[in-house]
């Protein structure tokens, strides 16, 4: 797994070329992304929040699945890097006319864009695009099916690092719908790569994959056990349609068993961080007083989100350019 992802995402000299998943990236690379993001946070504090790095480059936000929030942060990130941004909400309209994903991408290539930010309902769609359709365009995964949402996971890592300084020794619990969550898959991988002590999954078996242990985490059925002594609690968002597929009986029972209340949070370490990707279903996943409480970082993540996306976009563009260069046989010399 790791190997094929590494070869697809990295240039021969180990720089980022595409950002498709956390899989295949090592601790040094993840740390570099976090460090670069730190620098971009500083940029966001200036009176002019814009740097000229991607001036003259075109970034296409290619959203096959609607998501205003994620798209806006990518758009803002690209604009702060001085790139030209094109938003395409493709939805299902193109494909329902019989146009395949390959056709759509071939048409887009004519626009001579440098980067695609892709959101797609199918797991692996960005891999497919990176591999077969656009060899000279950097691909950023903005969420694919149940597979990965690596920028969201990295922004969570940035938040954890800001509060806990280091990953070593941390115990992290992820609570809720693991099975359908691309964010959870990316978070688990990132946490393990960055060297936390333990990742725990707390969920009923209907919301876990068939083989949860292969993800690199311990499974707990009860909140009381799963939260015991943890330093970070990540609450996942619960989709309403889970009630319909016989995965859960009701929101109220889910809240009773897996909702994060002040009482359940007491099992965690006293300074435990509470995180949620938002938007929050108050009273379904999390009690209002916890969501708004001192341990919660639910609202402080927007700045990090933009910084992470700026970091990943500039690094991937840089790797892509470097790669084009070396393919042309021009030596790259650092000054």
């Amino acid at each position: 797994m790791g190997e094929s992802n590494a070869s697809l995402q990295l240039t021969p000299d180990g720089n980022l070329r595409h950002f498709l998943s956390i899989d295949g990236l090592d601790r040094a690379m993840l740390t570099r992304i976090l460090d670069t993001a730190d620098s971009f946070i500083e940029v966001g504090e200036r009176s002019i929040k814009k740097v000229p790095l991607l001036r003259g480059r075109t970034v296409v936000n290619l959203f096959f699945e609607p998501s205003t929030r994620t798209r806006s942060t990518f758009e803002l990130a690209a604009k702060r890097l001085s790139a030209d941004v094109l938003n395409l909400d493709i939805g299902t309209s193109a494909t329902s006319k019989g146009e395949t994903l390959s056709d759509t991408l071939l048409n887009l290539r004519a626009m001579a864009s440098d980067m695609f930010v892709i959101r797609h309902a199918q797991s692996g769609a960005p891999h497919f695009i990176a591999r077969s359709v656009t060899p000279d365009v950097a691909i950023i995964n903005a969420g694919d099916g149940r597979h990965a949402h690596p920028t969201q996971a990295m922004l969570d890592m940035l938040t954890i690092r800001q509060h806990k300084q280091t990953f070593a020794g941390l115990r992290v619990a992820i609570v809720g719908d693991i099975q359908h969550s691309r964010v959870a898959r990316s978070q688990i991988r990132a946490l393990n790569t960055l060297g936390v002590d333990e990742v725990r999954l707390v969920a009923p078996y209907t919301l876990l994959p068939n083989r949860p242990e292969v993800l690199g985490a311990r499974v707990f059925s009860r909140m009381e056990d799963g939260l015991k002594g943890v330093d970070v609690v990540i609450m996942l968002r619960l989709q309403r349609e889970r009630m319909e597929g016989a995965l859960l009986p009701s929101e109220s029972e889910f809240y009773r068993m897996y909702g994060l209340t002040e009482e359940k949070l007491r099992h965690a370490a006293p300074d435990a961080l509470v995180m949620h990707p938002g938007p929050i279903n108050r009273g379904v996943e999390i009690e209002s007083s916890v969501a708004d409480g001192p341990q919660s970082v639910i609202l402080g993540q927007v700045t990090n989100g933009i910084a992470i996306r700026m970091a990943v976009m500039s690094m991937a563009m840089s790797g892509q350019l470097g790669d084009r260069q070396s393919e042309q046989g021009e030596g790259v010399q650092a000054s």
């Binding site: 720089n15 790095l53 991607l54 563009m317 840089s318 350019l321 470097g322 790259v332 650092a334």
Partner: peptide
Amino acid sequence: FSRIGLHP
């Protein structure tokens, strides 16, 4: 940047 990319 377009020649040597982002400083690591």
